[in-house]
Design a protein around this nucleic acid. Sequence first.
DNA 1: GATTTACTGCAACTCGATTGCAAAGATTAC
DNA 2: GTAATCTTTGCAATCGAGTTGCAGTAAATC
Lengths: 136, 136
Amino acid sequence: MQTEEEILKIKKVKNTAVRTVVLRHLLSQEKAQSLKDIENALAYTDRSSIFRTLKTFEENKVIHSIEDGSGMTKYAVCAKGCNCDPKDLHYHFYCTNCDKTFCLFDVPIPKIQLPENFKQQQANMVVKGLCDNCNK
Amino acid sequence: MQTEEEILKIKKVKNTAVRTVVLRHLLSQEKAQSLKDIENALAYTDRSSIFRTLKTFEENKVIHSIEDGSGMTKYAVCAKGCNCDPKDLHYHFYCTNCDKTFCLFDVPIPKIQLPENFKQQQANMVVKGLCDNCNK
DNA sequence: GATTTACTGCAACTCGATTGCAAAGATTAC
DNA sequence: GTAATCTTTGCAATCGAGTTGCAGTAAATC
């Protein structure tokens, strides 16, 4: 596992206190985190600073954002080597019971045959249902 | 093509003035519409009435909602015979240039192999990029 | 026709996201 | 080392989509 410092260096993002703690938090969670999740976890860091940190991370492909339909954008650290290209995409699973969002790295997304002259740049693929913990 | 009245009758939704014009507008558009789109198109109909109409339509499977990542939920009339089950799902295409959302009825969604004990109920599959009109 | 129920319009409110601005910190120039 | 410049941070305010309370109106039922 890479340290926060290593990741930021590789992605050419200057290291700061806020960036380190935000990235550390994201790395420590197995589920994608919302701005509010992070804010709650980091009690003494300002929301707008976290917000701007997330934007910076996203621009530099440290993290990717997920719109899971919960009303809050969630963020997860990109897998090693990820470039956020269509080929790096993966499904997300949103649990409608516990409101958690999982990255399904192991399930490949098939190539989608678009209509004539449409061009894919990105995708947001969210499967909704019950996670293993809630499906009892 | 079914009329608004026929659709509402089939879906067992009582017909009212607001419902008719909202459904008519949705049927007249080839792209999924946001609450704001509809509000702008129907100048003399109140936002909250449209909002509640859309909720009613969705509950009764007259329309389906799409979270395309634009920040606004969009709505489109269900295809004939649609039950909004996983088998009725289709991809959506969101154009990042013109902000329009298309239903890709012709592209089947493959069955997704979820991790052990996860259960799919719904899905929101959005491909983002440039539509034929903007890809020039 | 009276009563009950459903729908509509207005206004207010919620909450996640975003921005302006000034202070603090880091970097570069001299 | 110090001044000038650029970046980051924290606070407060704002934005905007979505949502709700409530009273008035319309429709359905008795």
